[in-house]
Design a protein around this nucleic acid. Sequence first.
DNA 1: GTGGTCTAGACCACT
DNA 2: GTGGTCTAGACCACC
Lengths: 131, 131, 131, 131
Amino acid sequence: MSDTALFQINTGATEPIYRQLIEQARRLVAAGQLKAGQEIPSVRELSAALAVHPMTISKAYSQLEAEGLFERRRGLSMVVAAQHGQAQSPATRAELLRPTLARAAAEAHQLGLPPAQALALFEQILAESQP
Amino acid sequence: MSDTALFQINTGATEPIYRQLIEQARRLVAAGQLKAGQEIPSVRELSAALAVHPMTISKAYSQLEAEGLFERRRGLSMVVAAQHGQAQSPATRAELLRPTLARAAAEAHQLGLPPAQALALFEQILAESQP
Amino acid sequence: MSDTALFQINTGATEPIYRQLIEQARRLVAAGQLKAGQEIPSVRELSAALAVHPMTISKAYSQLEAEGLFERRRGLSMVVAAQHGQAQSPATRAELLRPTLARAAAEAHQLGLPPAQALALFEQILAESQP
Amino acid sequence: MSDTALFQINTGATEPIYRQLIEQARRLVAAGQLKAGQEIPSVRELSAALAVHPMTISKAYSQLEAEGLFERRRGLSMVVAAQHGQAQSPATRAELLRPTLARAAAEAHQLGLPPAQALALFEQILAESQP
DNA sequence: GTGGTCTAGACCACT
DNA sequence: GTGGTCTAGACCACC
């Protein structure tokens, strides 16, 4: 059995579930929390754990397989790929964070908030969510 | 003629155009860049400026009218509502930025990035987008 | 000068202003409150009294003229037509009320309200609005 | 398959189709004819049954979802919401009938019809439409 | 199968 | 000129 707790979804969000899963998987692999060769939860397991339709899980896994992050093994559960599934350097991981922060910066600008204030708010939120 | 330049859309994004417009309008009003009583660009104007179908603009405007931010005037352009269309305090505006920053914080955590590094990246992005 | 107070509009309603005016005029003539040959308020007068665009008034008057209820006199204000502008019998006037009551009956049925209750509510509303 | 017969539209009326559907849905839910958790006809089903464009149906459903009466389930039919979709007491349902009756009362007054006559006409119409 | 989004374009209603 | 409504039809996303 694999650790289903690594994946969490928000059914209320507008973002589709399968995409939430894909992006989470990319980050977990980049951070080294999912290591090359490691088994990932089976479609059934994760489907039960998240109360999500199996086909939704399967769609996410298929796309991750297509981009080379996961590998399918006949008759066995999928594993993190050896080639593309390597933990990345901090600098590379930071790049994965850039799009969301760029969006936040654009919103701050439209809200007329000075950069210092936006930065202070981010610091506060990071501190809150840390422990 | 109203200032159509206030509104910008990203056709590549997954977020629907009409929703981009809605959220931009909320921020522009909160920041006081769209003032109570001010005329907003007509559906046809904005449609032409953004190269988007008029109905897409209309859908955004209708929803903003439903939430009380815009007011319809029969046969005339819509205006920012007097009641709900007031500029907000910096603290209130900062709250509108919170959801995106909270998402960024969650992603940073999943990427295993230390808060200091996430903060530094945000500072850099804010500086880049400023001028 | 004519009696502008006979006409009242509700700008908040979804029903267009010009149609509100037309239907009010029909009822006032049918009830004999506007008599054949009587002058009606000029477009300018009524426009000022109701704070409505003159063209809106004019549109209502033109349609009433087209259906023969009003007559235009060159250079003078319009008057209630001699032919079609006659007060009607109570039975005929009641017919003008039928569409709205039929709608109310349909709504009562969809709401699952027994006829007796709908009738009692109507009686109460009539009493309230009488004085 | 859901019961499309609950919804009926009048294409001749000036009231837009999507609004007719919205108001019917509110009444059906208030009357308990549409119960919390119950599936409503799919957009395509109702579109075919009423010979109306799917987008018109969709517009009504979206607005009902926005006011909390319907709930969307990703990829599945919409259902009546558990919270706001409760049947209402007769007194509350009667309140939904009040606006139309108030309009009828105002028209009766303008027609110079005595309340007793208006009431008698309503009673007759209710009896006609009952069976 | 479900609903969502967008386009193209017509027609109407209002001022 | 303004916005509103509807149709026809395409494509997408989700389950």
